[in-house]
Design a protein around this nucleic acid. Structure first.
Lengths: 193, 193
DNA sequence: GTCTATATGGGGATAGAC
DNA sequence: GTCTATCCCCATATAGAC
């Protein structure tokens, strides 16, 4: 399917150069087409971009949903640490997560509103999944249930810090060291002692 | 000074639209000039960009240095939480930190190497400052641990998560909630109990 | 669906008058 | 230092032949 090849190439260049820096001729060249042929598959640059964006969002969300629906619910330590590993794997294995991050952090100005809606949507869904899990764990007394501590947000902060390190992306050792430190302190902070 | 006005406008548009999306004509218009006049002050777009970048780096680093040289060393809780507040203030008060973050996360491809060097440089300096402080606090038994590296990286992860929330930037309440959660768990994770 | 040809606009950059 | 004029290049997009 040509339109899939076009989206793959578009994903690559949008991720490297951003919306403004990516050109249709570059994308077409990758697929072996002239840039004008893209218009037989997509209405224009915005249309192509938004389809790539929605694919990336879909992939990100479904990975999270699938992970937490198959994870061992009796072991929060393993479940949470495994999710961090999943995020790292996803980021390194294909470009969709990096694209998604770039566009949610710094969207092209004229598509800011559309993108913000998608970002809010996925954030709320993922937060809801985590909150459900944490509630189970608190009920089962597997983690502390202090009202002053909101473990979902604290864990999402650890996820954010991993994403930042992945975006920097120039130092595998530093990623490991920061993940180990953040995880150790986080886990101590939400466990019974 | 005209070149300062030009850099201010450039900072604004590079931050909003990125390197590729910002145009010299837009920048010049903001200052009341034609785009050609910019070449009387800067060698070209790259030169202008790199000067803005170095100003932003300088500002970021000097804020951190100044903060930790004047902070009360007997009170790590106050010192660290105050630094998070400083980061939030800096981010919201002027655009240099946002510009710096955008360019360190997603540099224009042809300047990637130069920017990476600047990022590594500032990161190492700031980490060294923090590591020194943490070592003092560990020695004084104000926080737990035997090596300063773990709490330093864990705290830098909290900083990263705050930055992510600032970059998203659409929800002040969510920023407060995530900061509170991340901070509470972090502090519990590094204190004696 | 892909191509050639073309329209239209904007980008960065340079030369030279004032 | 700022301007006008100009150059060259590449962008998105459309029209129409095959």
């Amino acid at each position: 399917m040509k339109s899939i090849e076009i989206k793959d190439a578009a994903l690559k260049y949008f991720t490297i150069h951003g919306y403004e820096g990516a050109s249709l001729s570059q994308i077409a060249k990758d697929v072996g087409l002239k840039k004008q042929s893209i218009y037989a598959h997509f209405k224009g640059k915005d249309d192509l971009f938004l389809q790539v964006l929605r694919d990336a969002k879909e992939m990100d969300l479904s990975s999270t949903v699938q992970y937490f629906s198959s994870v061992d619910s009796k072991n929060p330590e393993k479940a949470l640490y495994g999710y961090l590993q999943l995020v790292i794997d996803l980021f390194q294995k294909d470009e969709q997560l990096k694209f998604w991050l770039r566009m949610s952090f710094f969207p092209p100005a004229h598509l800011e509103k559309v993108i913000e809606r998608e970002v809010t949507d996925i954030e709320e869904k993922e937060r809801a999944i985590l909150e459900g899990k944490f509630q189970e764990w608190i009920n089962a007394k597997l983690i502390i249930g202090d009202a002053a501590i909101t473990p979902t947000f604290a864990f999402l902060s650890v996820v954010d810090s991993v994403l930042v390190e992945l975006v920097y992306g120039n130092d595998e050792e530093k990623l490991k060291a920061k993940l180990a430190a953040a995880w150790t302190v986080f886990w101590r902070g939400i466990s019974h002692q």
